[in-house]
């Protein structure tokens, strides 16, 4: 009997912790929409690309962030985004106000704003 009551009390204490750590109702006004924001950021670029195929990918040197790449891949799916500039079409994913100095073999096709660029690699046909 005592063992059962101890188990019940510990479970209820843990449930209290679960409730206390749950997001507050006020937090719901600003939900975490990280992939939705990323989808919107890449929407214009996606509209001009073919529906399938493989794209290259570059970020600003020194700012490599795996999450940025995965969000770009998720937004551009079903296109395959290869983490390499060795493709005819390359996505530039930059977060600075102005695009950084690009590698000489990458030519800007279009700047979609918000750091999203479509580039062509002139060394790859």
């Amino acid at each position: 009997m005592i063992g059962t009551l101890i188990l019940v009390v510990c479970c209820l204490l843990s449930t209290e912790r679960l409730i206390i750590h749950a997001p507050r109702p006020g937090r719901l006004r600003t939900p975490d929409l990280i992939t939705l924001r990323s989808d919107q950021r890449f929407a214009q670029l996606k509209a001009v690309l073919p529906t399938t195929g493989v794209l290259g990918y570059v970020e600003a040197p020194g700012t490599v962030n795996a999450a940025h790449y995965y969000l770009a891949q998720y937004a551009l799916a079903p296109l395959v985004v290869d983490y390499s500039p060795q493709h005819a079409l390359v996505v530039g994913n930059f977060f600075a106000d102005s695009p950084p100095d690009l590698s000489p073999n990458l030519l800007l096709i279009k700047d979609f704003g918000d750091g999203v660029l479509l580039l062509a690699n002139k060394d790859v046909r």
């Binding site: 209820l12 449930t15 679960l18 997001p23 939900p31 975490d32 939705l36």
Partner: peptide, 21 residues
């Protein structure tokens, strides 16, 4: 019943705050 209500509340709030996982 209390634990079920607490878990439902926490799960729904979590899902609403992080709708994309």
């Amino acid at each position: 019943s209390l634990a079920l209500c607490g878990a439902l509340y926490a799960a729904i709030m979590q899902a609403l705050a992080h709708p994309q996982g």
